[in-house]
Simulated assay, not measured.
Amino acid sequence: MRRTQVAIVGAGPAGLLLGHLLRAEGIDCVIVERQTRDHVLSRIRAGVLEPATVALMRRLGIDTGLNANGIEVSGFGIADGDRTIRIDLDASVGQRLTVYGQTDVTRDLMDAAPARGLDIVFEAAGVALHDLGSDRAAVTFVHNGREQRIEADVIAGCDGFHGPCRRAVPGSAAASMEFSYPFGWLGILADVPPCSSEPIYASTDAGFALVSMRSPQRSRYYIQVPSDARLEDWPAERLWDELERRLGPASPGPIRRAPALEMSIAPLRSFVCERMRHKRLFLAGDAAHIVPPTGAKGLNLAASDAIYLAEALTLFFRTGEQGALDDYERRALARVWKSERFAWYLTKLCHRFPGDTPFERRMQQAELDAIATSSVTQAMVAENIVGAPL
């Protein structure tokens, strides 16, 4: 048995950021992760960081990789046919986005953990939670064939959508809302320069396409596919052909082809559990909410959850004050719903939905016209893409 102040379940961005924030305040914590380190790092996820997330990495002093390899983006394009509307972030809000892969963020946080005294237990099987109403709440699991028990004042559930923590919250199913979109994103990662130095969201009659990058020499492209699409039906050449067809004149440069480093289909859905606290258990990150990748909000919401929860826990352990803990759910959900709204807006704007009529398509084009001709509307888009204030 081990005793700690905070037991964190899950070594994704939410759990790692929370762990580093707590250790920076001298609070004892341990992270328990059911997967191997290599498995966690193999997850190909988003790579666009809001200014608040960049500031957090720098505040923690875990920014060497970010400073060396992060790409600042001062704008992005929304394309419709032969027209591309550029959203100038510098002019609209005076802030920029940073392209830096979630895998890189996760690796940086893991690599910095030993020097910060942050213990991570990988390959923890059969994780279960106990005694959540007491100050000896516990996480049990099997590690290296031995049963383990960690008792803590607080448990942070950062174990993703499929983890056990949300299921340990009574009434979480009733407090949850979900919307599954009738399509997914087929993505390809390849070592070729991207056709654009800035992201491009393409809204076309054939469906959505996205130009993004992981570095000046590594491209990440996506196209909208039906929800029942199979990866085996999409050889790389077919995907490259479809990208060229959809982007057309919206591509500012040639789409260079290369063997795929990774290809996958990601379903799109929105999910929010409004019960982010139960007694001594607090949920953060994907354990509490999922956003479609259109708005690049998933990793950034994990970061803001970690900030809010770390602030509340620091005050609690220093003074015994419960008020900030009681307010954590409200603060986190306010930002979650703003991000969900923007991701829904951008998804609705750029994708073709089955059953859409010519009226829906005209409404999309009218909204794009409003963005193209109004600095106020452009500022609204810019404010949302860089993230709501903390």
Rank of each mutant, 00 (worst) to 15 (best):
V169D: 03
V32T: 11
H130A: 01
P226Y: 03
R116S: 14
G133Q: 07
R361I: 07
P170T: 05
Q322M: 14
I200K: 06
A79I: 03
C165I: 01
G12M: 09
D82G: 11
D88C: 12
G61R: 07
Y201V: 00
N300W: 02
Q217P: 02
A236D: 09
D38L: 12
P182R: 10
L333A: 07
E232Q: 08
Y308F: 13
Y221M: 01
F122C: 11
R34L: 12
T53W: 10
L268P: 05
A258W: 04
V30T: 11
V40Q: 07
H130L: 04
R107W: 06
G163A: 09
E367T: 13
A55G: 13
G117F: 00
F342K: 06
V6K: 03
V9I: 13
C350L: 12
E329W: 06
L243A: 10
I188E: 09
P267G: 11
A382Q: 01
R2H: 13
C29G: 07
L132C: 03
K338V: 10
K279G: 04
A24H: 14
L109I: 13
G157T: 12
W337V: 08
V105C: 00
N67L: 15
R136D: 15
F342H: 08
I188S: 11
M110Q: 13
R96K: 15
A175W: 03
I31F: 13
A138W: 08
Q35F: 15
R230D: 05
A190P: 01
L129A: 05
E311Y: 07
D305K: 00
G171D: 10
N144E: 14
G12E: 08
H351G: 04
I200V: 14
Y100L: 09
P182N: 00
A137P: 02
C165W: 04
H351Q: 06
V139C: 06
N69T: 09
F183D: 04
L313I: 00
R341F: 10
R331L: 13
V127N: 03
V291P: 01
D111K: 02
H20N: 02
C195E: 08
R167I: 02
A55M: 12
V9G: 02
R83W: 09
R352G: 02
N67M: 11
G145Y: 08
T357S: 07
D80H: 15
R116N: 09
P235K: 03
G298I: 01
H278R: 00
A229I: 00
G171Y: 05
L109K: 11
P13S: 04
D191H: 14
Q5D: 11
